[in-house]
Amino acid sequence: MDAMIAWAPLLLDALSFVLVLALVSLGLVVIFGLLGVINLAHGELFMLGAYAVALAVGWGVPFWLAAALAALAVGAVGWLISAVLIERLAARPLDTILATWGLAIALRQGVVLAFGPQSRNLDAPTDADVVLGAISYPAYRLYLMALAATVLIATLLLFARTRFGLTARAAMARPDMAAALGIDVRRVWRRTFVLGAALAGLAGALIAPLISVDPYMGLGFLVPAFLSILVGGSASFAGVLVGTGIVGGADSLLGHWLSPLAAQIVVFVVAVLAIRVRPTGLVRAP
């Protein structure tokens, strides 16, 4: 029982990290799956989400509304990136990697110029604790988990159950055939990119009160998100969730005993071993 009480907050912390990371990974994987684009600027979209929420809260916007606006704003940035950069390069994977890498640097430097290199902190909308049986746990983290889980499920349902999801999956599987059936594949791409960007923006906004917000925070989430996809496999959403659970969970739990750097090295080694054993990911395509 005592062990349970000691472990529960750690597990909840890990779960909240995993859920936020899953938003980032899911955005990355829908963009990769549909456009074949490895978006190296995805971490910066996440960072922009955190800055957007911090700015809006600074202007007096209530936190939750600010988080929603941050997701929309980053989605709009995604629209622009897709229209100006991605769609022109989509057939050239190496070019998109270079272009999004350059974009990542530009976005980071842009934020440094606009807001300075220093980190800032954002207060959570509530600092109340909720008593859960024998432990008490920050209410904000519980809200965050509920919201992230809801958005994840909604995104999965969007792809699995709606016409938009059907056309997106079709455009992913056979773009030419989808186009011949009358589907405007470019528009599907753009909407998917916007969705992926908005997910990253939301993740950044939700995590902002829990970590320090600085121009370089994106990398700290992009790397585990990539590892998650490599470990779990990019062929299905289940793969993304399993991979994120393993990578994010290990990262967060190990961080309690090891230094963050040592934890990341252990996670990295585990990920490399998992990829070695199952190069296409732990979860195969359905």
Binding site: T167, A173, L181, A285
Partner: peptide, 17 residues
């Protein structure tokens, strides 16, 4: 679309309009 159901394949024919 091999991984989709027969119905989903047909639905794609009308998805655009």
């Amino acid at each position: 679309f091999e991984r989709f159901t027969v119905e989903e394949n047909l639905e794609l024919g009308v998805a655009a309009r």
